[in-house]
Nucleic acid binder design. Structure first.
Lengths: 144, 144
DNA sequence: TTCATATAGTACTATATTAGTACTATATGA
DNA sequence: TCATATAGTACTAATATAGTACTATATGAA
């Protein structure tokens, strides 16, 4: 598998929707309707995204949420980080001290390398490029 | 997070241990002792790896497991696939028909692209390179 | 000032996944 | 024949995820 959670997935759908008109303020209800997800779920995610500084919120009538930064400056890596914590393919690849095998483990460094490559791939995809794929040579412009 | 399961992680530790002497036959007990994990857990993983064709097993006295292929030919992508199913960062990035938003989803193709990049990174790391990191320019030899 | 609107925060429940363990069956070789 | 070692299955406990409900607070317009 190696999967992000459903909620994080939804989060990227919400943000991509907002990136269509980056300056506009969207209410939770409007977003829920646009992307056909339950209001409660959309609402929960918007609160999290707002608390993490990815959105700017405004209460009351005409209130809602808008992107705190241009879509070019918000990466998938950041969204994942905000909604489910730092990218860490293995327990040991992000922070040390969690695995008892650490000291004797022969493969930890290499897992950290893999983690780095994955992180960089996620870092390179912005909300903007989610909506307007660059279509460059080599998907995501990464040459392998 | 974006994490593989603990069991899959253990699986790579087991296989890396076996890759040190690829021709040798290891009993489950010997491996459990070498990598300091419970025999029951190691045993469970060895059965799964064997059933998937990554190992060759032999019962009885002097029995045990050995790698079915040279360490160069076993990739992390394959190990993950065997122990926790195909790499699929989002529900929709591997197989279609699971998400109701699919038809209208603006970002599915791009998630599939991200998935592809991650898969290729995992494909490029073999048991051999886990133990003997290539140390090439750009981690894993992938230029970004 | 009042009130409908909209977000803020929190807590809770249900579900699904993961991890760990136990038990029985079967094959091997000395 | 028997100790050794894998094969298969099923079960339990722990953890993580998803979804929902409820109360509090801020805003702007009638």
């Amino acid at each position: 598998m190696l999967r992000i959670s459903k909620l994080t997935d939804y989060g990227t759908v919400i943000l991509a929707q907002m990136a269509r008109e980056p300056a506009r303020t969207y209410s939770a209800a409007a977003l829920a309707q646009a992307i056909e997800l339950p209001l409660s779920t959309v609402s929960k995610l918007l609160k999290l995204l707002n608390r993490s500084g990815l959105l700017i919120s405004c209460r009351g009538k005409q209130g809602g949420y808008r992107l705190a930064k241009p879509p070019q400056q918000i990466s998938l890596a950041r969204v994942i980080d905000v909604l489910e914590g730092p990218v860490a393919v293995t327990e040991c690849s992000q922070r040390s001290g969690l695995c008892q095998l650490e000291a004797r483990c022969a493969i930890r460094r290499q897992w950290q390398g893999v983690n780095g490559v994955i992180y960089q791939a996620l870092e390179r995809v912005s909300l903007d490029s989610l909506l307007n794929p660059p279509e460059a040579s080599g998907m995501l412009g990464i040459k392998i």
